[in-house]
Amino acid sequence: MNDKFASWPHRVLAVVTGALRAITHLMLNIPERPMRWAQRVLGGQRIAWLFLTPNLIIFSLFTFLPILINFYYAVTGGVQLWPSERPFIGTENFQKLFACDNYFDYSTCDQDLFWRAIYNSMKFVSIQVVLMVLFSLITALVLNRKIVGRGFFRSVYFFPVLLSPVVVALVWRWILLRDGVLNAIIESMGGEKVLWLLDPSWSFFWVIFVTVWAQMGFYTLILLAGLQAIPRDVYEAAQMDRASPWRTFRKITLPLLMPNMIVVLALALIRAVQTFDEVFVLTGGGPGSATTFLVQYIYNTGFAQQIQRFGLAAAASLVLAVVLFILTMAQLRASRSKIDG
């Protein structure tokens, strides 16, 4: 009786390990014969193609083929998804996107939301990336000091990076509600309630704050790795020469950290241009279109609205692709000149 109860975890364990062993056994033996045959046919080195096949098929189907189709979508119209049913309309999609009386006033544009999204994205990227790099740098410098519990503090700053963007957005939505804890704190200090996410400027602020909060730890980690790679004796030499801390920072730390800074800057830029998840759940792009960014414009145009304007969405994707291409090239150039120089 007692024996029966004692043994059931063992039995479960035995079943699981048995199943795993069987699966690995099958994975080893089923491809064995076809592989030997392929080896005879292809020869020793060309067998590599067989190993590459699954990956190449997936890359071709879901990355490279879509790039080609994207161009086709951009020059066709209609609401059909299937390419052969879409009428060719040339550059009409682009003309539509770029039809503006005055480029500095998006309300004069045919696709005013597109320009609003571009303007919002530019504003967002320029502020967010600066803050992101700045706070990651400060945090990395602080964590690089001789402190008690560095591992703990490092994980504290890193923790939000692992959270789902949706979770991040909900965590902050809950705080920023009208009757949320932030308003409670403000009221207890004698202030008045603020409708954080219904005010355009405040919601823009919170979008920046929340994305920096969520992603900062990742860049901090890269910068920290760079700081720890700087040899100690360089600092000791600077101390011998009685260099001031500011001078030491400017002449030693910053230049030696530059490669990592460039990586961080580039990754943060490319990521910021593509911001979607957190903002979509936090503000939904609103109030109005105050926090609608480029990727959300693509999503709204192609997928969220009743009439799915795939052509327009594809054309906007190409604009985004051009932006990302320029940024990536700038990064490559910057990192190369850094290595050469």
């Binding site: 189907l61 790039i67 299937w82 979607f276 795939f310 594809a314 994707s317 985004l320």
Partner: peptide
Amino acid sequence: MIPPTIVLVPTYLV
């Protein structure tokens, strides 16, 4: 170099 966000529509087709 090709982030998934720029091929949303055609990947959806595939």
